[in-house]
Amino acid sequence: LQAFIKTLTGKTFTVEMEPSDTIENLKAKIQDKEGIPPDQQRLIFAGKQLEDGRTLSDYNIQKESTLHLVL
């Protein structure tokens, strides 16, 4: 599935991932794409901060969901 990552500066980019991917995997993909170390990334979806060990499906993240990236 493709999801949108929106930063506080208003920049939006897309990442490809599977519902079974962990938040940790997602942070690694963001690092590959944007060069931001995972330990500096905080991802917010539906008002909740996402925990590394959980999966996208745990948070009911669907295709074309928008996640907010806070540094």
Rank of each mutant, 00 (worst) to 15 (best):
L69S: 00
K6N: 07
Q62R: 10
N25E: 11
Q62S: 13
Q62Y: 11
K11F: 12
A46K: 14
D58V: 02
L8V: 14
E16D: 11
S20C: 07
D32Q: 14
I61R: 03
T7I: 10
N60G: 14
A46G: 11
L50K: 01
R42C: 12
Y59V: 04
L43N: 00
H68D: 08
T9R: 10
N25C: 09
Q49G: 06
A28D: 06
S65H: 10
K33F: 09
T9Y: 14
Q40I: 11
P19H: 08
L67N: 02
N60Y: 07
K29A: 08
L71T: 11
L1I: 15
P37E: 06
K29Q: 07
F13G: 01
L71P: 07
K48I: 15
K63F: 11
R54H: 12
R54W: 10
E51Q: 10
E24D: 07
D39C: 11
Q49T: 14
N25P: 00
F13N: 00
S65R: 07
G47D: 06
D21P: 01
E18L: 15
A46D: 14
P37V: 05
K48R: 11
L71N: 07
G10M: 03
Q40W: 10
K29M: 08
L1Q: 05
E24M: 13
Q41R: 00
S57Y: 09
I61H: 04
L50S: 01
E16R: 06
I44C: 12
L56T: 03
T14P: 05
K27Q: 02
L1R: 05
I5F: 02
H68L: 15
L50I: 04
A3N: 03
L71G: 06
D58E: 11
E24A: 15
R54E: 06
D21N: 06
T66D: 04
F13M: 04
K6G: 03
I61F: 09
L50V: 05
E64W: 12
P19N: 09
E64A: 10
A3S: 03
A46M: 14
P37M: 05
Q31F: 15
I23A: 02
Q40D: 08
T7V: 07
P37G: 04
G35A: 04
A3R: 02
T55G: 03
S57E: 11
F4L: 11
F4M: 11
V15G: 01
T12F: 10
K29H: 05
L67S: 01
T22A: 03
Q62W: 09
L67W: 03
I5D: 02
D32C: 07
T66H: 15
Q40V: 10
E24N: 08
D21S: 08
V70S: 07
I36M: 04
K11A: 08
L43D: 00
I23C: 01
E51P: 02
T9W: 15
Y59W: 02
Q49S: 10
Q31M: 13
L8R: 12
L56W: 05
L69F: 06
H68T: 12
F13P: 00
A28Q: 13
G35H: 06
G10H: 04
D58I: 01
L67E: 02
G53L: 08
I23S: 01
K63D: 15
I30W: 00
Q62E: 10
K48S: 10
A28L: 15
G53R: 09
K6A: 07
Y59D: 01
Q31V: 04
G10V: 03
T9P: 04
K29W: 06
R54F: 13
P37W: 05
P38H: 11
Q31E: 09
A3Q: 04
K6P: 02
T55F: 08
K63V: 09
G53P: 06
I30F: 02
L56Q: 01
G35C: 04
Q31D: 04
A28Y: 12
I36E: 01
K63L: 08
E16Q: 10
D52S: 07
D52L: 05
L67Y: 03
K27N: 00
T14H: 08
D39T: 10
E18A: 12
I30A: 00
F13T: 02
L56A: 04
T22P: 03
E16S: 10
Q40Y: 10
G10A: 03
I36Y: 14
L56P: 02
K29I: 10
G35L: 04
Q31N: 09
D52N: 12
I36H: 10
V15L: 11
L8G: 12
F4E: 06
